[in-house]
């Protein structure tokens, strides 16, 4: 397979993907999508938040779940990193701790797909992440 070395190669690749998958306009109705915030402060990064975030970006797309994955600072749960905050449309945000790839898979399959609460929820005690 040809390597991607130039912006033109990247653009071609994007066109190829777009022709394969129906383009979804996420920006226009972002608030209706599943919102996932991955805590990416020192504690989160040191505990493996990068792998968790990469997993969400890849797997949510592969499983056809429309979501917005963003990063955030420390939520104050350094002991339970990596932590993520998941907001389903019309529901309150839920924070999950000790999220590894296995737990992330469970959160996608059970909480995001069916709304079923899974182990690892941390009671939220902050007003806004700072």
């Amino acid at each position: 397979m040809e390597k991607i070395k130039t912006l033109a190669d990247l653009k071609l690749k994007q066109e190829k993907f777009r022709s394969q998958v129906e383009l979804r306009s996420k920006a226009s109705r972002a608030e209706e999508l599943v919102q996932i915030k991955v805590a990416m402060a020192t504690c989160g990064i040191a505990s493996g938040a990068k792998e968790v975030m990469e997993f969400f970006v890849e797997e949510l797309d592969k499983r056809n779940i429309e979501a917005v994955v963003t990063q955030t600072g420390c939520m104050g749960y350094c002991f339970a990193e990596p932590t993520i905050e998941v907001t389903l449309f019309g529901k309150d945000p839920v924070v999950f701790g000790y999220v590894d790839v296995k737990k992330a898979d469970e959160i996608i399959e059970r909480y995001i797909k069916t709304g079923e609460l899974v182990d690892g929820i941390i009671p939220k005690n902050y007003e806004s992440i700072n």
Partner: peptide, 25 residues
């Protein structure tokens, strides 16, 4: 630069891997 080249689908699994490959190469 990515925006100017209309490369704006980074949130898809294929494109995020493609951009990563572009940077690594």
């Amino acid at each position: 630069e990515l925006g100017e080249n209309e490369i704006d689908d980074l949130n898809s699994a294929g494109m995020s891997a493609a951009v990563k490959e572009y940077i690594n190469e």
